[in-house]
Simulated assay, not measured.
Amino acid sequence: MKMMNKVFFLAITALFFVSCSNDDDSQPEYVPAAFEKGILVTNEGPFGNGSGNITFISEDYSTVTQNIYRTVNGTELGNIVQSMGFQDDNAYIVVNNSNKIMIANRYSFEAVDSIKTGINNPRYFMGTDGNRGYVTNWGDPNDNGDDFVAVVDLRNNTIAATIPVAFGPERMVTYNNKIYVAHQGGYGQNNLISVISGTNLENTITVGDVPNSMVVKGSSLFVLCGGNPSYTGNETAGSLVEIDLANGQVLNTYTFGTTEHPTNLTMDGNSFFYSLDGNVYKLNSSSISLPGNDIIAGFFYTMVAKDGLLYATDADDFASRGSLKIYDLSTNQQIQDFQVGIVPGGVYFNE
């Protein structure tokens, strides 16, 4: 950030104290000049109506600002704020039901541009360099044959190509210039990882049913698969699948019990963390033995481990404002609890 912005930030924060209100629409909020250091939480918002938003929590936890995009720009993001990704100085905010990606400066949250054509039911964005990004799209969620990954030209924020893929593409990770896409299956279930190179679908890898989260450790991709839920009439066990990124081969599959459906795989140091049946479990990533140790109780919507802390969101009843809870992983004790927006679905860091 430029020195002028930093000076303005100090000046304005000396004048105003920003905190959460019980109703973020009823009281005006004063926004710091920059969101350079801290935590960003994407809040999906109410399903089918209203708008999602983004909450900012300062690095020292002293300042919490709700609905920063609307406050800075005077407009709502739309319905549903599914996720967010970064590339250089920009934040790419994926607004699912509104079929658009809103682009803002990640430090000031001033609007930069938007992408409203060439995408359909977008889910997640990943930038790979200053020229190219990728967006997973469900298309019509009732049509399993129209799903695709859009390739974004980041120089002009247009869709440069679309790559047809199997149904239900969701989260992505990148390794060695390739994109790995988990196919959770949309409103159904799937069991694939797509491997994309440039603008081409290189191959697919079969994993367990309903892959929902991934991490890269060394030269391996670990994929947490939830398994088919019981309501499908074909319930299957969750699993943790290790893939050799050098050749795309499955190295190991670790299987949970038939009625166990884990989610939210994340990693910090040499440990994996995931959610299962109202508990957070910890695994030694070098010597995996399921289920590992349950360390924290709580039903969390999403969670991210980073630098010895666990950032976990609680969506409460999915109609009221949720919360972000922070745990010290050295003691497994909660150290912070912040009110955020309705259905907090993503945790990101401005550094």
Rank of each mutant, 00 (worst) to 15 (best):
H261V: 11
E235L: 03
G208D: 05
L221E: 10
H261R: 10
G227C: 09
L251D: 06
C225M: 08
N212C: 15
Y231Q: 12
E260W: 04
T236K: 12
D244M: 03
N264Q: 13
H261C: 07
F256R: 03
G208Q: 06
C225A: 12
G227H: 06
G269H: 11
N270I: 06
G269R: 11
T253P: 02
S239L: 07
M214R: 01
A237Y: 10
T232F: 06
T259A: 14
N252G: 00
F222Q: 03
N264F: 08
A246C: 02
T258Y: 06
G208M: 04
S219E: 14
G248Y: 00
L221C: 02
T259W: 04
G248C: 03
E235D: 04
V210A: 14
V250C: 05
V223W: 00
N212I: 14
C225H: 11
M214D: 02
G248F: 01
N270D: 15
G233N: 11
G226S: 15
G233P: 03
G227Y: 09
N264A: 10
F222V: 01
S239H: 08
E260M: 06
T266D: 04
M267V: 15
D268W: 07
M214L: 12
L245H: 00
D268K: 12
N270P: 01
F256G: 04
K217M: 11
P229D: 12
S239I: 07
S230T: 10
Q249F: 04
E242D: 06
F256I: 08
G218A: 11
I243Q: 02
G269C: 13
S230L: 12
L245E: 00
N228L: 13
L240R: 07
T232H: 03
A237W: 09
S219P: 01
G233F: 02
T258S: 14
T232V: 06
Y254T: 10
M214Y: 03
N252H: 13
S219M: 10
T236G: 06
T259Y: 09
F256W: 13
V223D: 00
G248L: 01
G238N: 07
T232D: 08
T259E: 15
T258H: 03
G208Y: 07
T266C: 08
V250K: 11
D209I: 02
G233T: 09
G227I: 06
E260C: 02
N212M: 13
V223P: 00
L245V: 00
V215A: 05
T263H: 14
T253Y: 05
G269L: 13
S230H: 03
P211V: 12
G218V: 10
L251C: 00
T253I: 12
T266N: 03
V215D: 01
P229S: 09
V241F: 04
T258A: 14
V250D: 02
G269A: 09
T259R: 07
V216C: 01
M214Q: 08
F256K: 01
V216G: 03
T255E: 13
F222Y: 15
N234V: 08
S220I: 00
L251G: 05
N264K: 11
N270L: 05
I243N: 03
L240G: 05
N264R: 08
P262F: 10
A246P: 00
G257M: 07
T253L: 02
L251K: 15
